[in-house]
Computed example of a mutant assay.
Amino acid sequence: MQSAFKKRNLVLKKIFFIIFSVLNVFAFSQTLGSTLDKKTLALGEAGVFRINISNLQGKDVVSAPKNELLPFHFEEIKDSINKQADRYDRIIEFAVFEEGKYTIPALDFTIGGKIFHTIPYEIEVVNTAQKGDQINDIMKNKEVTLDVKDYWQLYKFYILGVLILLALIFAIYQIVKYGKRRKSSPVVMTNQTLKDLEILRKKKFIENGDYRSFYVELIDISRNFITKQYQIPADVLLTDDLIDVMKLNNAISPQNETIVEDIFLRGDLVKFAKTFPDQTMMEKDFEDMKTFVKRSSKDLEMEQLRTGV
């Protein structure tokens, strides 16, 4: 009898222990729940998704940030979180703007370091508009009369852009034009020719008695100078024709014409080996040509006064 009584007491203790353990689990565990107000939504219609956690016991709740809990196709309109010591509530209003079936997956919520999951939901989004439905504006379009100020406000940036572009093109044109004028100016041409003459001297044709090379280069430099400085085609004319053009043109003073004529005629004689100038003559022709180049600006000044330019 005593043995049977002891066995019955032991069984009752085990039953009470199991019941106590189960009640303890329910009493001290957290409960995660979620609800969806509609399983079918019209395009753009708002739906409400609620998550609640009870029996928190002051534990932290970690989940996705606001407006980032639902998947891509769900446009979250409002995401509100209310957390108290023993309860957590999160309400999300959302809309979907494409037809089809979409799923709210099981969402992770970490409660006191442990991960819990909501149940998944499937939502169908339908287009409730019927073919042939007439769409009316809430208000009729209103005509507005625009004046000059209104057009200016609308197109001022385009106008200013065009004006700036035109000004830039004009500035570039003037710079290029000025640069060309500077390069072809009498002073620039005179200085360049004087430099060419100094280069010729450094070749020591005069000192070495190489009269043929000396006169060939001296006349080439002179022809190029006359062509650019006086606008006379000296680079293509024969010596006799060039002399006639200079006399008819009157752009070169008589004194300078004499220098050019003497040197060019002597150069032709040297070229065809009809004369053999000495060092003194070459020195004189070189200095006379330098003098002619330096005095050319006065010729041009006189020509401008004569023509009234």
Score class of each variant (00 low, 15 high):
residue 147 D to R: 01
residue 190 T to C: 08
residue 109 F to E: 00
residue 92 I to L: 06
residue 280 T to D: 07
residue 44 G to F: 05
residue 8 R to C: 06
residue 241 D to K: 07
residue 111 I to Y: 02
residue 1 M to N: 10
residue 69 L to Q: 00
residue 13 K to M: 10
residue 62 V to L: 10
residue 21 S to Y: 08
residue 67 N to K: 11
residue 81 I to P: 07
residue 65 P to G: 05
residue 88 Y to H: 04
residue 165 L to S: 12
residue 133 D to R: 11
residue 253 S to H: 06
residue 121 Y to L: 06
residue 157 F to Y: 14
residue 120 P to M: 01
residue 123 I to N: 00
residue 286 F to I: 08
residue 181 R to C: 05
residue 173 Y to G: 09
residue 116 F to S: 02
residue 143 E to W: 04
residue 208 N to C: 01
residue 270 V to A: 05
residue 73 H to C: 03
residue 139 M to K: 10
residue 127 N to K: 02
residue 142 K to Y: 09
residue 276 F to N: 06
residue 77 I to K: 04
residue 139 M to S: 12
residue 16 F to T: 04
residue 107 L to A: 03
residue 18 I to P: 00
residue 245 V to Y: 11
residue 120 P to Y: 11
residue 203 K to H: 13
residue 236 V to D: 00
residue 239 T to N: 08
residue 110 T to W: 03
residue 72 F to S: 14
residue 245 V to P: 05
residue 186 P to V: 06
residue 83 K to E: 14
residue 3 S to P: 01
residue 153 Q to F: 13
residue 175 I to Q: 08
residue 3 S to C: 00
residue 69 L to C: 06
residue 41 L to Q: 04
residue 243 I to S: 01
residue 206 I to V: 13
residue 180 K to F: 13
residue 261 E to K: 05
residue 7 K to N: 13
residue 212 R to I: 11
residue 264 F to I: 12
residue 142 K to A: 11
residue 202 K to R: 06
residue 173 Y to S: 04
residue 166 L to R: 01
residue 293 V to S: 04
residue 168 L to M: 15
residue 119 I to H: 04
residue 151 Y to N: 11
residue 155 Y to F: 15
residue 247 K to M: 02
residue 169 I to A: 14
residue 189 M to S: 03
residue 57 Q to V: 11
residue 15 I to F: 05
residue 301 E to N: 09
residue 104 I to V: 10
residue 124 E to C: 10
residue 97 F to Y: 12
residue 53 I to T: 12
residue 5 F to S: 09
residue 49 F to P: 01
residue 106 A to G: 15
residue 297 S to T: 12
residue 286 F to C: 04
residue 86 D to Y: 05
residue 23 L to T: 01
residue 64 A to W: 04
residue 116 F to W: 01
residue 300 L to K: 00
residue 100 G to A: 10
residue 277 P to Q: 01
residue 37 D to N: 15
residue 226 I to A: 07
residue 19 I to L: 12
residue 90 R to V: 09
residue 307 T to M: 10
residue 205 F to Q: 00
residue 150 D to N: 14
residue 1 M to S: 14
residue 30 Q to D: 02
residue 253 S to N: 07
residue 166 L to P: 03
residue 246 M to E: 04
residue 175 I to M: 14
residue 69 L to I: 11
residue 97 F to R: 05
residue 99 E to R: 10
residue 148 V to G: 03
residue 7 K to A: 07
residue 93 E to M: 05
residue 29 S to Q: 08
residue 207 E to T: 09
residue 103 T to M: 11
residue 152 W to Q: 08
residue 79 D to S: 04
residue 105 P to S: 09
residue 200 L to S: 02
residue 71 P to I: 08
residue 82 N to T: 14
residue 41 L to D: 01
residue 187 V to S: 03
residue 18 I to G: 03
residue 284 K to V: 10
residue 79 D to Y: 07
residue 127 N to G: 13
residue 284 K to A: 14
residue 67 N to M: 12
residue 189 M to Y: 01
residue 121 Y to C: 03
residue 183 K to T: 13
residue 42 A to E: 15
residue 87 R to F: 15
residue 91 I to A: 05
residue 61 V to R: 08
residue 28 F to N: 03
residue 33 G to R: 09
residue 84 Q to N: 13
residue 218 L to M: 06
residue 245 V to W: 00
